[in-house]
Design a protein around this nucleic acid. Structure first.
Lengths: 214, 214
DNA sequence: GCGCCTCGTCTTGTACACAAGAATCGGCCG
DNA sequence: CGGCCGATTCTTGTGTACAAGACGAGGCGC
C-alpha cells in the first residue's frame, strides 16, 4: 500500500471540505495515526500539505488545527475568486485548448440533476467544480495552483446547497454563456461572465449563511 | 537548536532564490541532511515546504528538484502579478492600515543606494521586496499568501540587476506615485500604478534575459 | 484566599532503522 | 552488434524511539 501520506491527506481533506470537521478542531498526530492505522510520519506530511492548501494551521510545537474562516476572509475570498477565475476564463477563451463538448456535457448533467429533486446538491457541486477546473486547466500553469487555495474551501463547497431555484437557474445560464464566450474566443466576455458568476455566488454566501445545517 | 526544519528551509530557499541552485538540480535528502548536519526528517519537511512555495517539484519515489521556469511561465507570472499586486494596492489604498512613513523611508533608502554605484542591486532588491510586502500585508489575509508564489521567484529577484538607469528611475518614481495614491485613498489610482509598475518590470524581463551573469 | 512556582504529563520535533520501489549497469540472447 | 532482461545499488517512504518544549494541575508561600 504505497502513498500512505497521500491517502491520509485525501481523507482529511475530504472531511474538512465536507464540513465534517469543525473549524478550530485540533488535529493530533498520534490520534490520526491510530485512526488511519499508520505511523505519525505520513500523518505529519499530510498535515503540512493541508497547511499549504490553507485548510489547516500548524503552530510550531503546538500542533495543527482546522482553519477558521472569518467573515472578512469570505469577502476577500469572493473578490479574489472573481479576479482570478475571471482571468482564467479570459485566458481559456483566448488561448484555446478547451474541450467545449466536455464542458457542455457537464452543463447537461448538472441541469439533469437539478431536475430530479432528490437533494442532488452534492453531485451538482462536484460537476460544477469539474467545470471550473476545466477552465482553470486551460488557463496556464500557475493560475490553477493559485486557485486551489480559493476553490477548495468548505464554505465554497456548500454554496449550491444554499441556492434558491432562481439562483440555480441563473448559475446554469451563466455556465452556458461562459461556454459560448469561450467558443467565440472573446476573452473580455468570458471574464465578465465569470466575474458576475462568482459575485452572484458571493451574494448568496453573504445573504444566508448556512441555511442548510451540516 | 530548535526549528531545524525551518533553518534548512530558509537556507535552501535562499540558495534557490539567489540563483545559487541551477534549475533542475536534484535535491537528495541524504546529501542535504549531511550538508546541514541534521537527519533526513527535517530535510524532508523543508523540501515539501519548498514544493508548496513552487520552488521545487517533488515526484513520488523519485525525489525533489529545483523548479524549472519556462518562458510562457514568465509571461503568465507577469500577468498574474500585475493583476494581484494591483488588487493588493487597491485594497491597501482603500482599507487603511499602511505605514506611509515607513514606505517613504524605504524609497529614500533605495534611492540612496542607487546613488552610490557600488553594485547595490542586492540591497535595492531587498528594500523593494520589503516595500511590496508592506503593501501586501495591508491588503488582507489571503492575498499575501497567494503573492508569495509569484514574488519569491528567482527570475523576479534578479530584475533590478537588469534595470538600466532610466528604468531604475522610472521604477522609483512609480513607488513614490504609489505611496501618493495610497495616501489619497484612491484605489483605482494605486492599482493602475502598480499594474504599470509590474508590466514595466515584465518588459525588462522579456527584453534582456540575464544580461548580468550569475 | 490568591497568586506564583514547580512538577508531571502530553504533544510535537528529530534521529535512526528498515522496507519498498526506481534507476542503472551488466550480462545474455537473438 | 543491438536490444532485452535481471540483479545490484541507490533513493525515498514508513515505522519506531527518544528528546525537548508546552500546558495544566497541584502545592506552597504570602
Amino acid at each position: 500500500m504505497s502513498q500512505t501520506a497521500t491517502r491520509v491527506y485525501d481523507e482529511l481533506r475530504g472531511e474538512i471540505l465536507g464540513g465534517r470537521c469543525t473549524p478550530g478542531a485540533r488535529l493530533r498526530e498520534e490520534e490520526l495515526a491510530e485512526r488511519f492505522g499508520v505511523s505519525r510520519t505520513p500523518v505529519r506530511e499530510a498535515l503540512r500539505r493541508l497547511e499549504a492548501d490553507g485548510l489547516a494551521v500548524v503552530t510550531p510545537r503546538r500542533g495543527a488545527e482546522v482553519v477558521r474562516w472569518r467573515d472578512e476572509d469570505i469577502a476577500e475570498l469572493v473578490e479574489l475568486r472573481a479576479l482570478l477565475e475571471g482571468q482564467a476564463a479570459r485566458r481559456a477563451a483566448t488561448g484555446g485548448g478547451v474541450d467545449l463538448v466536455a464542458l457542455t456535457e457537464l452543463c447537461d448533467r448538472m441541469e439533469e440533476h437539478a431536475g430530479a429533486e432528490g437533494r442532488a446538491a452534492d453531485e451538482i457541486t462536484r460537476l460544477n467544480l469539474e467545470l471550473h477546473r476545466a477552465v482553470h486547466r486551460a488557463s496556464g500553469r500557475l493560475l490553477p495552483d493559485l486557485l486551489v487555495r480559493l476553490i477548495d474551501v468548505p464554505v465554497v463547497r456548500r454554496t449550491f446547497h444554499a441556492y434558491s431555484e432562481t439562483e440555480l437557474r441563473r448559475s446554469f445560464a451563466q455556465h452556458r454563456e461562459l461556454i459560448e464566450a469561450i467558443a467565440t474566443g472573446d476573452g473580455d466576455w468570458a471574464a465578465a461572465v465569470m466575474h458576475a458568476h462568482i459575485r452572484a455566488a458571493g451574494a448568496t454566501l453573504r445573504a444566508g449563511r448556512e441555511p442548510d445545517p451540516r
